[in-house]
């Protein structure tokens, strides 16, 4: 009687979204798929991303019986949400709209900064989602952050310095455009692990929005109350490749052991 929620990412960064979901809905059953064999999505064409993401979504819905799908991947949310929605018969939630909605809720100046990967920034999906809510979004790609997180340098002076430089450049760009942003959206599923670093680095009065947390809150609202909150969360993780790496790094993102990761073949 508990809902099964499918969570999909091109890699395992989406485990930060799963972590937030588990905190919001501890009684739910979760099935996570990391399409690690076809990683990274950011370097692929939109058509290819749409096909990969739709196949992954179909695996979670048709084979794992997910009743609600969370796309815990910014690239897939930005470039393939419609294709995923068309491919499955359950509600689909991406990470971009909830992130922008949370920014709109908290921003007083209506000016927002977004940091993300190159592919997400190039899609301008966050800027568009912000615009729909009457916000002006300045975006910046921060390509060094994902490798630093995967290296485990989440609390390292080098990472803090890289974050400081990126933020300085972003603020300079925003201020150059005559803006006074008061909100920073973490538009990559790896970045919640750097939330503390960002919170220490942003100027006073700038609020850091974690799109993983915002997505989990929206999913919980739509799924509704989940009985059995006292039960141990139930998760099952699948990956299309590199299960050992997934198991090793996954616990860092999930904040607990991911357990045995099952290998699945989704084709080419």
């Amino acid at each position: 009687m508990t809902p099964t929620i499918g969570v999909f990412d091109s890699g395992f960064g989406g485990l930060t979204v799963l972590k937030a979901l588990m905190e919001r809905m501890p009684g739910a059953r979760f099935v996570f798929l990391g399409d690690t064999a076809r990683l990274p999505y950011g370097s692929k064409s939109q058509r290819t991303i749409a096909r990969y993401a739709a196949e992954s979504a179909q695996f979670l819905v048709n084979q794992q019986k997910a009743e609600f799908l969370v796309i815990a991947c910014n690239t897939a949310s930005a470039l393939a949400l419609d294709a995923i929605d068309s491919a499955v018969d359950v509600p689909v939630l991406g990470v971009i709209e909830p992130g922008a909605a949370a920014a709109a809720e908290h921003s007083k100046t209506g000016q927002v900064m977004v940091i993300a990967t190159e592919a997400t920034v190039q899609s301008h999906a966050y800027a568009a989602a912000c615009k729909r809510r009457g916000l002006h979004g300045v975006e910046k790609a921060c390509p060094l952050l994902v490798p630093l997180v995967e290296e485990g340098w989440t609390d390292h002076p080098v990472t803090a310095e890289v974050v400081r430089i990126y933020l300085e450049e972003l603020l300079k760009e925003a201020r150059g455009a005559g803006q006074t942003p008061d909100t920073l959206v973490l538009g990559c599923t790896h970045y919640p692990l750097l939330r503390g670093v960002f919170e220490r680095a942003v100027p006073e009065g700038v609020r850091v929005i974690d799109s993983a947390e915002a997505t989990a809150a929206e999913a919980a609202r739509r799924v509704g109350s989940v009985p059995g909150a006292a039960e141990e969360p139930r998760i099952r993780c699948f990956a299309t490749d590199s299960v050992e790496k997934f198991e090793r790094l996954g616990s860092r993102f999930l904040g607990m052991p991911v357990g045995r990761v099952e290998l699945v073949d989704l084709g080419g």
Partner: peptide, 14 residues
């Protein structure tokens, strides 16, 4: 960008 082909290839299972 036209996604129709990608979408249909994803959904047209037998």
């Amino acid at each position: 960008m036209d996604l129709r082909k990608a979408e249909s290839s994803a959904k047209l299972s037998p």
